[in-house]
Amino acid sequence: MSPIPAFAPADGRAPRRAGWPRPLNPRLRDWRGLRVWIVGASSGIGEALARELGHRGARLALSARREPPLRALADAAPAGSLVLPLDVTDAAAVQTATGRIEAEWGGVDLVVWLAGTYAPMRAQQFDLARARAMLDANLHGVLNGLAALLPMCERRTCGGLALVSSVAGYRGLPKSLAYGPGKAAVINLAETLWLDLSPEGIGVWLVSPGFVDTPLTAANDFAMPGLMQPADAARAMIDGFAQGRFEIHFPKRFTLWLQLLRLLPDRLYFAAVRRVTGL
């Protein structure tokens, strides 16, 4: 079984390639036989991605807190799929799941870390317990994953990591008092990981969704521009993997505007956000 293609040699020297610009990550186009661990696969984007990659022939390891949805996904996936229920805030459970994958598969070609939670929050309704719970799931859970996966990267038994953040991490937004800071940290984390791991031939992807129609976004009581269905979001991720991008963001008609807004001076940025949101 072939691992994902390395795009740089282990000594850190960039290979010569025809064409420019050189992709920042391996171009993943043929998923047949690739070993993919999806963390956060029970619903939303994770479920849709599992279904799409299963159709494309990937071997799947499926994780989330709820086991029954994972079993249903595994039944529809290629033979040999692993079901690994876990709570990402439990560091020991993440270590155990990682160990099982390495023992049964010998390694993993790509880990897609989607697990997280969301609840709208403003300063006037600040809830410390809820804020800590969001950071535990959205940031500390990722760190638990890295504690288990980075030793695999050193052993060359993990080919790449895709961390799912959010455009809410670009800059401060209303109702994102606890969610946004955690996602901003994941963006910074992915950028730093790319700098550390790309010279070793290990892919690092940052996935920045806009609004996707999931049980989490159902809590929003405001208009969500460019709202996507999970299946479309999964296909956008797969297209980004095929192009060798570092950041995969969607839908572009919405996310490109947010990327432009993040470049504005503070005064203009705050004025624009207030005008658009009415808050």
Rank of each mutant, 00 (worst) to 15 (best):
D127W: 10
V36Q: 06
V112Q: 02
W257T: 08
L256V: 12
M134G: 01
A41I: 12
G145T: 10
A115H: 00
I248K: 05
L177A: 14
M228W: 01
A218I: 07
N25D: 14
F222E: 06
G240D: 09
V88I: 11
K175Y: 15
A218M: 11
R17S: 14
V186K: 03
L73G: 02
A93R: 14
T214E: 14
A162T: 00
L53K: 05
L24C: 03
S2L: 10
A234S: 04
T89W: 13
L82Q: 01
G172I: 05
P215S: 11
A115P: 00
C158Q: 06
L264H: 08
V39D: 07
D213S: 13
W31M: 12
A233Q: 13
A72G: 11
C153K: 03
L268D: 10
A93V: 14
E191D: 10
R122A: 12
P215T: 06
A219F: 03
L264R: 07
A184I: 00
P209D: 14
N25M: 04
R100S: 13
G19R: 11
A79K: 10
V276S: 08
P15Q: 10
A242K: 01
S166M: 02
G169H: 00
S2T: 09
G203R: 00
A14L: 15
P209F: 14
V167H: 02
I101L: 15
W20H: 13
T255D: 08
W20S: 15
V39T: 05
A48K: 00
